[in-house]
Computed example of a mutant assay.
Amino acid sequence: MHKISGWTGMLTVVFHAVLLLMDQYVPYQIREIFIPFLAKNDPVFSALGTISYYLFLLTLATSDFFIKTLGRALWKRIHFLVIPAWILMILHGILIGTDSAQPWAASVYGGGIILVMILMAFSVSREPQ
């Protein structure tokens, strides 16, 4: 389930980037999506999403393709980059999202934050002392 959720998240990010390329309301060029701070539309808030993507990609790639090569200790340190990636993604969505002021969006962000916090607390409580 953990691996599937990671790949589903990555596919969602790729879908988001493709939609931005096709968007007529706030058009983006491919370099604006993949190079942080280059976007004409809110360059800092756009960059939060781009940096989040790269951290997430690094986490996913090392987990699926390089875990044995890296060794468990280094892999685990890299894997924890998903936390700042998630924080940057949340900030990106709240600060630049065109629907962020809508009640449903606040519910999605709030529900996601609560769910992740509960799962993190559960994970930490299961760690051997």
Rank of each mutant, 00 (worst) to 15 (best):
M1Q: 02
H2Q: 06
H2I: 06
K3E: 07
G6W: 03
G6K: 11
T8M: 13
G9H: 06
M10L: 15
V14K: 06
F15R: 12
F15E: 10
A17H: 13
V18M: 09
L20G: 05
L21S: 13
M22C: 11
M22N: 13
D23E: 10
Y28E: 08
Q29F: 11
I30Q: 03
I30K: 00
E32W: 09
I33M: 04
I33V: 14
I35E: 13
L38D: 15
K40V: 02
P43F: 11
A47W: 06
Y53T: 15
L55Y: 01
L55C: 00
L55E: 01
F56V: 01
L57M: 12
T59I: 05
T59S: 14
L60M: 15
D64W: 01
F65L: 04
F66K: 07
I67R: 15
T69A: 15
G71I: 06
G71W: 08
A73F: 10
W75E: 05
K76E: 09
H79F: 06
H79N: 11
F80L: 04
L81K: 00
L81G: 04
A85F: 00
I87N: 01
I87W: 06
L88H: 02
L88P: 00
L91E: 01
I94A: 07
D99W: 05
A101K: 13
A101G: 09
P103W: 08
A105N: 11
A106C: 05
S107G: 12
Y109W: 08
G110D: 00
G112V: 05
I113D: 05
I114C: 12
I114E: 02
I114M: 08
I114P: 07
L115R: 03
I118G: 02
L119H: 08
L119N: 12
M120C: 15
M120R: 09
A121W: 09
F122H: 10
S123D: 14
S123P: 00
V124G: 07
R126F: 03
E127P: 03
Q129P: 10
Q129F: 08
